[in-house]
Design a protein around this nucleic acid. Structure first.
Lengths: 194, 194
DNA sequence: ATTATATAGAACACATTGTTGTGTAGCGAT
DNA sequence: ATCGCTACACAACAATGTGTTCTATATAAT
C-alpha cells in the first residue's frame, strides 16, 4: 500500500539530527540552526529547509532524537527499598550521564510554548510515574505497605524531588542523596495510618 | 560620594523593561529584542543598545524585573498544618497568577546556560527553602513534630512538588492539591520514628 | 550659561530565517 | 536499460535581528 520511504530521506535526516544533537549539547538550543547543521554535515541548507520548514521543528525533532534513550523499566520483584533504589538509581544515572539529561531543561523550557515539546515531556513523565506506581503496587501486594492509602501523591513525590533538584534547584544527584530519598519515601509509604 | 543617577536613565530603563515584560509574557523570551522593545516604547534602538549591549542582558534583566514581586514571608505561629497551608497557598497563588509564575519556566530554561538566570533561581529557591524550614523549626519548638529528625529533605519535598507539578509535569495547582499535599507532608513530619 | 551625557536617528556590516528557481544525481518501476 | 519522480546542491533573493559607529539634539547638573 504505502510506498517505502526513499532511503536518501532517512540518510539525510539521521545525519542532520546527529549533528544537531552535538550542536545542541555543545552550544544550546539556539545554536541549532539550518545554517549550523548545514555547515556541520555538508547537507545543503535548502535540503534542511525541505525537511524542517521551520526552525522549531528541527529543534523539536532534535529533542526527540535525544529523548529516545532513557527508557527505564521498573524493578518490581521487591523488596520495596531495593526496587526504589534500583529504579531511581537508573533515573539518576540517566539524568546525570545521558544526552537527554543534559538537554532536558531546554525541552522543559520549550514545553512552556511548544506543544510538541510539551507532549514529549508529558509522555516521558507518564512513563516515569506508571513505572514507580508499579513498584508501590507490587509492594502493596506483597504486604510491605498498607493497602488503603492513595499511592499517587507518593509516586509524585518520589519523582518530583530528583527532577526538582536537578533542573530547578541545581543540586546534585548522587548516591548519598539517593539513599536518603529512598529512605524518606519508604518511611512515608510504610507508615501505619494514612 | 557617588553622584546620583541621571533620571533619564531610570526612566528609559523602566519604560523598556515594562514593555519587555509584556512582550516576554505575550510571545516568549525570543520575542524580546532591541527592535521589538524599541517599537513598543518609542525608545531608540541605539539607546537600548547603550543600556543593554547584549540581548542576553536585556532578557535577563527582564526576568529580574518580573522576579521581584513574589516575596512570601512564612507564617510560623502554628499550628503546623495552618502554617504550611497558608505559605504554600501563597506560593500556589504566586505561581498561578503573577507574571513571575508565567515566565518562570523560561528563566529555569535560561538557567541551564545563563549564570545570571541561575543566580536568580538559586536566590529565589534559597528564600523558599529557608521560609519553609522556619515553619518546621517552629513546629518542632512547639513540640508538634519529633525533634531529632533531619528537616532538610522534608523541606525539599514540600517545595519540590508544586514546582514539579507546575513546570515539569504540567499539572494544575489548586485547592484540592494543596490540602492533600499539606496532609501528606504533615504526616511525614509527624511520624514518630525518623 | 556651560558642560556632560542621554537620547534620536541614520548608515553600516553581518548572520539567521525563509523562499524560489535551476540543474544534477539517485531511486523505483516498467 | 530507460523512464519518471524526487531528493539534493547551489545560487539569488528578501526580511529581520544583532551589533557598531557616527552626528545632531535634548536635557540634567554645575
Amino acid at each position: 500500500m504505502k510506498k517505502p520511504e526513499d532511503p536518501r530521506l532517512a540518510a539525510t535526516r539521521n545525519l542532520a539530527l546527529d549533528a544537531a544533537l552535538d550542536i545542541l549539547q555543545e552550544d544550546g538550543v539556539m545554536a541549532v540552526t539550518h545554517a549550523s547543521v548545514s555547515k556541520a554535515t555538508g547537507v545543503s541548507r535548502s535540503t534542511l529547509y525541505r525537511h524542517w520548514p521551520e526552525i522549531d521543528r528541527l529543534r523539536t525533532e532534535t529533542f526527540k532524537h535525544a529523548a529516545t534513550p532513557p527508557h527505564i523499566p521498573p524493578k518490581t520483584n521487591g523488596p520495596l527499598r531495593a526496587d526504589l533504589k534500583w529504579t531511581l538509581g537508573r533515573l539518576m544515572s540517566a539524568l546525570n550521564e545521558t544526552a537527554w539529561g543534559e538537554i532536558a531543561p531546554q525541552v522543559i523550557a520549550a514545553a512552556a510554548t511548544d506543544q510538541e515539546a510539551r507532549g514529549l515531556i508529558n509522555d516521558l513523565m507518564a512513563e516515569r510515574m506508571t513505572g514507580v506506581e508499579a513498584i508501590f503496587a507490587a509492594a502493596e501486594k506483597r504486604g510491605e505497605i498498607p493497602p488503603d492509602q492513595s499511592i499517587r501523591p507518593i509516586v509524585e513525590m518520589t519523582i518530583a524531588v530528583p527532577y526538582f533538584r536537578k533542573y530547578i534547584n541545581g543540586e546534585p544527584l548522587n548516591e548519598d542523596w539517593l539513599d536518603a530519598h529512598v529512605e524518606l519515601i519508604c518511611s512515608l509509604a510504610e507508615k501505619p495510618e494514612a
